[in-house]
């Protein structure tokens, strides 16, 4: 494997966004790119990352390899990279280590690190293609704000989507709260628009602790997409350039 990223910031942000949710992960490398799929310890959430080969330049992967990496270790090493450094990942066939180099674009500084790999026996889940009943695309900062504000009151949030809009509601010991958003097009800045596409009304309840955690990815993209269907996991997607993505799936709360 040899994969060169123009900006180390992208990988730094991705790892930052998932390291509190998942610890030891396989980075599955093949000629289409680098993918990661991992459940959190309690098996409530699933992280699915895809960094397409087009996001790297150049990208070369002659044989499929799984790089088992501890994300705490990776974070320590990535801390040594500046955001605008050029980052290159390298691994040999049947590797013991993954090699990372950080090149400063404006000086002759080159740093090089090896991280020991782990043998990780991870369950792979098949994620079915789903036609979601409701898809909401909104500014990622807005979603972060909603989850943060409501998590101060309650452990869970009900998300209801109707043709009127989307409503986030919570009930806690001190009282209750809600935030409603309507479909809205911002003509001056499309990134601030709220788009809602709905085929049938949806109402689901989710743990806010996980949603707050997902929002650590907000720095990766101005926009976030929420996909919901009754009685299936919520998909929270942060799109990256070149069709790469960071997706989180969250199992709904049951009961009531």
């Amino acid at each position: 494997l040899e994969a060169r990223l123009e900006q180390a910031a992208m990988l730094k942000r991705v790892v930052d966004a998932i390291k509190d949710l998942v610890q030891d992960c396989n980075f599955d490398c093949n000629d289409s790119g680098i993918a990661l799929q991992a459940m959190d310890n309690s098996h409530v959430a699933l992280v699915s990352m895809m960094l397409k080969s087009e996001s790297f330049s150049p990208f070369r992967c002659d044989r499929n390899i799984a790089l088992g990496i501890n994300l705490t270790s990776l974070t320590k090493v990535l801390r040594a990279a500046q955001g605008d450094d050029i980052l290159t990942l390298k691994a040999e066939d049947a590797p013991d280590v993954v090699n990372l180099t950080f090149e400063s674009p404006e000086s002759d500084r080159l740093s090089e690190y090896d991280i020991k790999l782990m043998d990780i026996d991870q369950e792979h889940l098949g994620i079915p293609d789903t036609e979601y009943a409701a898809t909401i695309t909104l500014p990622s900062s807005e979603f972060s704000r909603i989850t943060r504000d409501l998590s101060a009151l309650s452990e869970s949030v009900a998300i209801e989507c109707t043709k009127e809009g989307v409503k986030f509601t919570c009930t806690g010991d001190i009282g209750n709260g809600s935030v409603s958003l309507r479909q809205h097009t911002n003509v001056e800045n499309d990134a601030k628009s709220v788009d809602i596409s709905l085929t049938e009304p949806v109402a689901l309840t989710f743990s806010l602790k996980y949603l707050v955690n997902f929002c650590k990815a907000a720095g990766l993209s101005d926009r976030v997409r929420l996909c919901l269907s009754n009685e299936v996991p919520l998909l929270v997607e942060y799109g990256l350039s070149n069709n790469s993505y960071l997706r989180f799936y969250l199992a709904p709360k049951i009961g009531d």
Partner: peptide, 14 residues
């Protein structure tokens, strides 16, 4: 976690 479904019940193991 009480009342919390598991993701593994929705997605099948490969």
């Amino acid at each position: 976690i009480e009342g919390q479904g598991s993701i593994a019940t929705f997605f099948e193991k490969k």
